[in-house]
Design a protein around this nucleic acid. Structure first.
Lengths: 241, 241
DNA sequence: AAGTGGTCTAGACCACTTT
DNA sequence: AAGTGGTCTAGACCACTTT
């Protein structure tokens, strides 16, 4: 009567939790696939589906003939699961995240924005400016531009501190399927950036220009963020099978 | 008598080729999984293994109930399959790559290098300095440090123009399993960089600090690269299932 | 020789989208 | 209602590593 229906989700969640809480520590061997089938009472194909997902993130490493191991260096990386969510980046770096909503206003799309978001020039957009802090230290200033047309409901309050994907889910009923990032070097040169990020003029910064799309390839958000990496370094992991 | 043994590889290679050569163009629907099983004469599980790999790179998008589609924007990204291979990054950006071997010498590891490569300080390392050009324009200056102990054979010639993973395969019999990248902003400040990258002093650049590991978590290479993104922008894609 | 993950089959039913 | 991908089973044999 207490049947768990979403088997894959359950197995995946359980294994992620065990790795996160070091029940399976860095470098340690996971139970064999056969042992996992026995423990969870599912077929090997189900187990392998889950392990494939974890391996593609670099969380585990599988060696034919030898076993499946927790990646020894997961702890050194702060972008596991992607850059979508700056809040999580902060958490994974070991800090306490705070998100401040600096401003939220409606205006007409610039030509560039209209182009990127597949809008006619002048169509209304919502502009969110937010500041991310790690342990009270500001280090990301993010501007996100969302077509006003996506806001189906007529809410009169939007919580600007929600992670972007939850914001879109909540107020636009849209799910982000993929994103394209452009990363470039920049420096603190305008007064607003210098003030909000609390950094000296000329400080070298990273800039992300990102477009988020849904499954139907429709652009949902265009954003650009300025990232002060003297606070938190940006560390990616990439794995090959 | 003409049996193809590596079924998955064959299917995967064929589908990649078709996408690359636009037999399946951007945004177009792929044949259904059922159709692919018929065409290749394999089970659906085999087809799904391949499609899962392509989807995790963002090459295709699968929509339950609707079909499998080539990502409309694959062409906008130049890091598909990862940053491992700068030569491919250039190709994917539409340029002709050239790799120049600037220097290749043996010396003692610095303390920092020894730490990163799990060596005792002073152990010998091989240092490769290489310049990557896109259509004759220099844009990446890469330094790679490899423990001398990895060079098993006593070759007296090393081809410094090989992509790093082939270099390691060839001369060290080592396969890269994963890498950890740190991306930071920097600027052209030393004479050598300015000269080789042919850029004005103070030009803003990206810097990658990368450590490559094998399956047994052994560090194989530590590298740092300076990247002039005024030549080729760095564009990532990230997808969520 | 025993144990491990990798490939592969031939089904079944479900969730979701399209027609 | 028909078609599509998602989940799931219960096997089999292979390639590779460890004992």
């Amino acid at each position: 009567m207490n049947q768990i229906k979403a088997t894959i989700e359950h197995v995946e969640g359980t294994l992620r939790e065990r790795i996160q809480q070091r029940a399976y520590g860095p470098g340690e061997q996971l139970p064999t696939e056969l042992a996992l089938t026995a423990e969870f009472g599912v077929s090997r194909a189900t187990i392998r589906t889950v392990l494939t997902r974890l391996a593609s993130e670099g969380l585990i490493i599988r060696r034919q003939g030898a076993g499946t191991y927790v990646n020894q260096r997961v702890g050194e990386v702060n972008t596991l699961g992607g850059l979508l969510d700056y809040g999580r980046l902060i958490t994974e770096s070991g800090y306490q995240p705070t998100i401040q909503s600096i401003s939220m206003l409606q205006r007409e799309a610039t030509e560039a924005e209209a182009e990127l978001l597949n809008l006619a020039p002048g169509e209304p957009v919502m502009v969110l400016v937010r500041l991310f802090l790690a342990d009270e230290r500001p280090f990301i200033l993010a501007t996100n531009v969302i077509p006003q047309a996506l806001f189906s409901s007529n809410d009169d309050f939007y919580d600007g501190r929600l992670p972007l994907h939850l914001f879109l889910q909540q107020y636009c009923q849209q799910t982000i399927a993929y994103a394209i990032y452009e990363i470039s070097p920049t420096q603190a040169d305008d007064a607003k950036t210098i003030q909000l990020l609390n950094c000296p003029p000329g400080q070298q910064l990273l800039q992300f220009a990102t477009t988020f799309y849904n499954q139907a390839d429709r652009p949902l958000v265009w954003g650009h963020s300025t990232y002060d990496d003297s606070v938190v370094k940006l560390r990616f992991m990439q794995s090959w099978v």
